[in-house]
Each structure stands twice: as C-alpha cells, then as structure tokens.
Design a protein around this nucleic acid. Structure first.
Lengths: 156, 156
DNA sequence: GGAGCAGAGTTCATCTCACGAACCCAGGAG
DNA sequence: CTCCTGGGTTCGTGAGATGAACTCTGCTCC
C-alpha cells in the first residue's frame, strides 16, 4: 500500500488544523456563523478568557477568515466587529460535520440542540453527505479509496 | 434573533471537540483511515511524542473511536493494534471537510496531495456536500437557517 | 467639567499540557 | 547472555490556557 509513503508534511488536514485547530478557534467561528460579531458578545457566549479571545480573533483576521469592520452604534464611539469572509464561510461544512457527529453520539436520546434548515421556501432539514461525482451517496468511509498524488513520481 | 439564547453547554460542536479536539487526535484518526494500526507506525508517520501518542490512543479507545485488538505476527510475541469502530468511522466527514478546506486554501496552485475516489467500479472523485432533504445542494453557509431546539420552551 | 460606566483589550501569576530524551520491559534472534 | 525491536512510562522544560486585576477610551449623567 502506498499509504505509508505519501507526503504528510503537505497534508491538508494538518494544514487546516494549524489554522483553526487551536482551542476556541472553531467555537469562535461557530458563533460567527450564528451571527455573533462583537467582542463582548463572543466573550459572553463563549466564556473564553479575554486574552485568548483577543489572540484568536486577531489570528483569524490575519488568516483572513474574519474581517475587522469598524462600526458605530448611534450615540456611541466607533468600535469594531468581526465578520466572516468567504474563506471563513467555507469552513462551514467542517463545523456541520463536527455538529452532526456530536448530535449522533453525544446527545444521548435527547434531540439535537440545534437544527439546520434550508433558508427560504424550502425550509427542509440540511445535512452533510459524502458523494461521488457519478452521483452515488456514500454510506461509510469504507467506500472511499484514498489516492496519494505525489508531486514527483506518479506511480500507481 | 434567538441566536443569543440557545444552550451553548450542550453544543455538539463543543462536545465533539472535547472528544477529538486535542492536538494530534484528528491526525491519529486520519492515519487510522489510511490504514495505520500499530503504535510504531503512528509514531513514525506522525512524529508525535510517544507519551502524547499513548495518551491520545488510550483516550480514543476509551471514547470508543478505536478498539485495541490483540494480534500476533508469526514468530513474534503478542501485541496490540488500534482499529476504527463505527463511531470512529463516522468522523470521516469531519476529516474530509478539513481536508477539502485545506486543499482549497492552503495548497496554493499545487494539486491536493491526496485524492478520494469511490471504491470499486465507479472510482469517481468523492467530495462532501451540504444538501437539504428536498434535494437541493447548498452553495454556502448563507443558505442555512439555524433553528435552536430548546428543551423547555418551543417558542418560534 | 468631573464621576461613573461600558466595550475592548493588556498584564500577570498559576496551572496544564506538549515536547524530546532517556529509561523500562518482554520476547525472539544470534 | 546479550542485543534488538515494539510498545510503552517517566521526567524536566517550555509553551500555551486560565481567571483576576488593571488600562484606555469615549460616551452619558449630573
């Protein structure tokens, strides 16, 4: 098997975890998806230490998952809020995947605390599916064959 | 908006991260999906410190994502290997989600290091999609409406 | 115009966790 | 008997997480 011989250093899973794998990062993004934008709101709903929150937010801004946008509520001084960029929005499937696994294995008979629905007329429940370009929906990881794409040798 | 008022303490994202959110956990699972089973092989391909690896593996076994199975290569003493359970296999979409994001934003023009294909005759590329029960494929997180399901009040 | 307040941080002491290197233990090979 | 190898454990150090306390700024209220 070639599984032992592909280049782990370029692994996208590790790379993505290097960006959002620190404690709190994904939870900050979860709240961002739910509409939270202000520092104090993140702090309140997450309960994370301020220093960590400051650090994570600025990392996420540097990584361009969030943008820091100035705003000014009437009768108040100018402040900043944090909004998701397209790059940040594209992490949504990751969060949904984590959520669905938790819903299945952690909720223990009680209903999932949060449901996702297709916005608009449709309003049907939304879920994540693994499927192939031929249109088959895969039921398990067992149906997947990983193929390393070496940059040098393209041996079978 | 009800976004500020749902019960974060039961959040499935946080719950799942509590199980696999520590450093190395998801990378161990990645290797498990690629077929790695033995301690020494995890150690070699990941380069993680032995102590951490021991700790993560036993956590994953306790969480029942992996099982510790005895085996005995001929002419050797009995050893253990670690195999994915169904609960562990179900984390595959999470890894695929992380991988796809990394492939898109981190690989920077070079092709993704690993490709997934539908095992068997099909062999078509596999990817993850967010879709609703009515059959629509969603293009963005913006098309999703999160609905909190409070355990007490079911107010709109 | 000064006092008080809230949002958004920073600083600090403590504690936990990750790290690499060294050590241990069992059984097979020579 | 000694060496080797797989599968760990132990340990000292250093990085990162934590909650509490402090800061800075521009409000509003008196």
């Amino acid at each position: 098997m070639s599984e032992a011989t592909w280049d782990r250093s370029r692994c996208s899973v590790a790379g993505t975890l290097a960006v959002v794998g620190e404690k709190w990062s994904l939870l900050i993004l979860r709240e961002a998806f739910l509409g939270v934008r202000r520092f104090a709101d993140f702090q309140r709903v997450l309960g994370a230490p301020r220093a960590v929150l400051t650090d994570r937010l600025s990392t996420l801004v540097h990584q361009e998952l969030l943008v820091r946008v100035p705003y000014q509520a009437e009768g108040e001084r100018q402040r900043h809020e944090y909004r998701l960029t397209a790059k940040g929005l594209d992490l949504y499937p990751t969060l949904v995947a984590l959520m669905e696994w938790g819903d299945r294995y952690l909720c223990d008979e009680s209903p999932a605390p949060l449901e996702l629905r297709h916005r608009g007329d449709c309003d049907a429940p939304v879920h994540l599916a693994l499927s192939c370009d031929a249109g088959h929906v895969l039921g398990s990881a067992r149906e997947v064959r990983p193929v390393p794409r070496s940059t040098e040798v393209s041996s079978a």
